[in-house]
């Protein structure tokens, strides 16, 4: 279980997160939606301390971090319990697909190289890249790179995987393959928090949907309820703008 309490974050005078409370049960898939600038990516980055929250508390199972004064060890542990998939893939460019996945296993988890290799090959086969083990990121398409990124995150066996707009940088024709992989691992019961703009995907895969705006959680609930009968006015407006029927009617 992941529990965030009163997470606050400011960049200079600009308060981006204004006290976020969020609980994610084990095995849940949470989709975070909201207009750009609403703080959803910042919230995600706060969970593994790529962004340092000013205040609040992060609890993962029985491990907790007080954000105001964290020690280095706590941050390190927190990062080992989480994994992240980035919008820009952020693969290690000088390493092959296989080495990208292995890296965390034998550097951080101290697993022997042979064992790490076997596990990594398994994972790359799972994301459909069994034939690209020795390719460098520059030789892979965006969709393939992102699938390596997902395999790299899975390798660490984290409590939760954080997806930061995993399909936003992709060509439309490549979005499908990445979403299919995420869908597949969602079925295996891994806890996931996904920031996304793919409404259909969120409705389909998520077990819980959170709508954020201007640094606060406006509304949250089951995807069916939130998409069909939102309670808050801001949620209604957002969904109206983003659903295809409204977007294409002249």
């Amino acid at each position: 279980m992941i529990k965030l309490t009163q997470i606050r974050k400011s960049f200079g005078r600009n308060e981006v997160l204004k006290g976020i409370d969020l609980t994610v049960e084990k095995g849940e898939v949470v989709a975070i939606l909201g207009p750009s600038g609403s703080g959803k990516t910042t919230l995600l980055r706060c969970i593994n301390y790529l962004e340092k929250p000013n205040e609040g508390r992060i609890v993962i199972d029985d491990f907790s971090v007080q954000c105001r004064r964290p020690d280095k060890k706590a941050i390190h542990t927190l990062r080992q319990k989480t994994a992240m998939v980035f919008q820009q893939y952020n693969l290690f460019k000088h390493k092959t697909a296989l080495e990208n996945v292995m890296e965390g296993l034998f550097v951080v988890k101290k697993i022997s190289k042979d064992e790490a290799r076997i596990r990594s090959i398994e994972l790359l086969e799972k994301v459909g890249l069994g034939n690209k083990l020795d390719s460098y990121p520059s030789e892979l398409s965006g969709g393939q790179q992102q699938r390596v990124g997902i395999a790299r995150a899975l390798a660490l066996n984290p409590e939760v995987i954080l997806f930061d707009e995993p399909t936003s940088a992709l060509d439309p024709e490549l979005v499908g393959e990445v979403l299919a992989v995420i869908r597949k691992i969602a079925k295996e019961g891994i806890t996931m928090i996904i920031v996304t703009h793919e409404m259909g995907f969120a409705q389909d895969v998520a077990s819980h949907v959170v709508f954020m705006d201007e640094g606060v959680i406006v509304e949250q609930g089951k995807p069916n309820e939130l998409f069909t009968s939102p309670k808050e006015e801001r949620t209604k407006q957002f969904l109206k703008r983003i659903t295809p029927e409204a977007a294409y009617s002249i």
């Binding site: 593994n48 790529l50 390190h76 990062r79 080992q80 989480t82 994994a83 992240m84 980035f86 820009q88 952020n90 693969l91 290690f92 460019k93 000088h94 890296e103 965390g104 550097v107 951080v108 988890k109 790299r152 660490l156």
Partner: peptide, 30 residues
């Protein structure tokens, strides 16, 4: 060397030193 790769190294659980020697340094050398 782009900052994103360093963040990815942190996210994987590497320490600052590991991220520098294993990710940044080889690419910076090249």
């Amino acid at each position: 060397v782009d900052r994103g790769q360093v963040e990815a190294a942190y996210a994987v659980g590497m320490t600052g030193f590991q991220a520098f020697t294993r990710i940044v340094l080889p690419q910076a050398t090249a």
